[in-house]
Amino acid sequence: MSNGVIAITEQSDGVFRKVTYEALSEGKRLAENLGCNLTAVVLGSGIENISDKPGKYGADKIIVVDNQALSEYMTDAYTNVITDIIKKEDPSVLIIGASSQGKDLSARLSARLNAPLAMDCIALSVKNGNIIATRPMYGGKILADMALEGKPQIVAIRPNAMNIEESAGAGNIEKLDVEVGKIDLVFVEKKLDTGKVELTEADVVVSGGRGMGGPDFSVIEKLAELLNGAVGASRSAVDEGWRPPSDQVGQTGKVVSPNLYIACGISGAIQHLAGMSSSKVIVAINKDEEAPIFSKADFGIVGDLFEYIPIITEEIKKIKS
């Protein structure tokens, strides 16, 4: 009998990240498979009004630590608090979203707890009561099935890789008072562009490459906005200074798995493909019919992006109205 699955949630200013719902939903599926309960952990400050939400995604118990010192994510405070919870709950599995916070936290927890970690998983299954975690390596050129020996088995899941599914859990809230322990880090400030759709979580990504010819990305920005998507870029576009590094998709940029990826003026170098080839549907628009991107695209248009994108945008507007 397994001791349960714990899902670590992530919220920013009182809003849960999308990947938190993915972690809860996948955590529930694992718990059902293992025949155990799902517990959600919610950390932060002033989080009263969101604490019950994990119950709608199958959490049987919700451990809430509402503490001023946890208002912003900091590796040391969060690691200390979660370690105490893990020691008390003794779960078999810890699931967490592989966001920038989740990657940092899971890596530090794994070392602190001497527990195995599979980072950035895209699929999880259960065999003989143990997790098998599938994760990309070598920029997605390989998929590896990993076995994790030890307790808890920590799995960090890639954003947008797993289905969100509502299911009723008992949702019993347990408020916990804990010491945050020794903290070295000091929070200074946070600068967020809240109006922007996050690249790694977007359902639609429209990316521009060197074929954009300059920093004016307005044609693809309009299309992205219409589809409530995010704008990405190839490394060449970033190197040219047309887009910030945070927009880069690829092996040395972000990995995205949207439902729809539209590559505009991008040739399809292997390092770019590493960041987007797990997208569900890929569209490429490129002047050069020999461009390698076409061999990975579900739909292609050979032509000038500046001619096609505005017409495509208009056609989509027609459908939407």
């Binding site: 098998i132 590896a144 099935d145 076995a147 890929i282 695209a297 292609g300 050979v302 032509g303």
Partner: peptide
């Protein structure tokens, strides 16, 4: 503590459909 059980290649993406037509509008 973490071990690779098996490596596999990701599902191969095949080139799909290049859309052709009389005009950019129809494409």
């Amino acid at each position: 503590k973490s071990k690779v059980l098996a490596m596999k290649l990701p599902p191969e993406r095949k080139g799909g459909k290049i859309i052709k037509g009389d005009s950019s509008h129809s494409i």
